[in-house]
């Protein structure tokens, strides 16, 4: 049905396309230039020499210092450590969140009514209302009590409970026809087998959409790492960029922009790889 519809409408729009020049392209191109301009300029600056970055009016044409600046950004900011820490934090949060939500959503949808299910549901809804910013001081004190300040545990654990993921997966699990579950049970598949061999593959689009959202969010988190880590050994990329900007001197913009470009690569790759499934999983979420 859906396929037939889209086929029909693509034929129709083909006719429209042939009939007149399409202004949509012009508008899209204008917006594309406006929105992409900051990144484009970052590329230009990353090719300039330090002296050229201070010129006024600014230079708008690239020079040949790109590789030198990249190398300086890499060594000067201890990029290897920053990338490693950001990656550990991000993967820890993302995978932990997805596994916890997967288990929780499965428990709440596939075992009928059990005592305490309502209690769990309430805990989840309350968690949804409490972003880290509104509980930041006690969470810091808690990390202090655990002796976790300036550790990976402190960067990861406070973010593991994810109401968003759980609610999204709960909804998607409910939409899987129960015949699958019936036949799996007749074939003697246990609950965990059903979860991993049938539910997970069936909801792959939603899971990759969730992975994208959580990865980008965790990679870009700034306030919590700023507060909870203080040694350069534990510093994440977002804070490392801040440290490149000196308070009292002319900032080395060419090096800073190189670092920004390096730091943008991991989440950008994830967005390019998964943005289709994000669109699909959101479509799923918002109903018809």
């Amino acid at each position: 049905m859906q396929k037939a519809l889209s086929k029909g409408s693509s034929k129709r729009s083909q006719k429209i396309r042939q009939s007149k020049f399409n202004w949509t392209y012009v508008w899209l191109a204008i917006f594309l230039i406006l929105l992409a301009m900051p990144l484009f300029y970052a590329f230009i600056v990353s090719t300039l020499s330090f002296k050229s970055t201070a010129s006024s009016p600014p230079k708008l044409l690239p020079e040949g210092e790109f590789l030198t600046n990249m190398a300086t950004a890499w060594t000067h900011s201890h990029m290897k450590v920053l990338l490693k820490n950001s990656m550990i934090m991000t993967m820890g949060i993302t995978i932990g969140k997805i596994v916890f939500s997967l288990f929780g959503a499965f428990a709440l949808t596939h075992f009928g009514k059990f005592r305490g299910a309502g209690f769990f549901a309430i805990i989840i809804i309350i968690s949804r209302m409490l972003p880290v910013h509104v509980r930041i001081i006690p969470t810091y004190e808690l990390m202090n009590t655990f002796g976790w300040v300036d550790t990976y545990a402190a960067l990861i654990f406070p973010f593991l409970a994810s109401a968003t993921g759980l609610l999204l997966l709960q909804q998607v699990f409910l939409s899987v026809p129960s015949e699958y579950c019936d036949s799996a049970r007749i074939d003697g598949v246990g609950p965990m087998g059903y979860l991993f061999y049938i539910l997970v593959p069936m909801t792959k689009a939603t899971l990759s959409g969730l992975f994208l959202i959580e990865f980008v969010w965790a990679w870009n988190e700034y306030l919590w790492p700023l507060i909870i880590t203080d040694s350069s050994r534990m510093r994440v990329l977002q804070i490392g960029i801040k440290m490149l900007i000196p308070a009292d001197a002319q900032p080395p913009w060419n090096v800073i922009m190189s670092a920004v470009i390096i730091g943008l690569i991991p989440p950008l790759l994830i967005v390019i790889a998964f943005h289709d499934s994000l669109t699909k999983s959101v479509a799923f979420q918002s109903g018809k």
Binding site: F100, F103, I123
Partner: peptide
């Protein structure tokens, strides 16, 4: 179901609700 809910519930309570 209780075992499966423990990770989400415990981390919610310790890291979100109590703070």
């Amino acid at each position: 179901p209780y075992l499966l809910l423990i990770p989400a519930a415990v981390s919610s309570i310790i890291f979100i609700i109590i703070p």
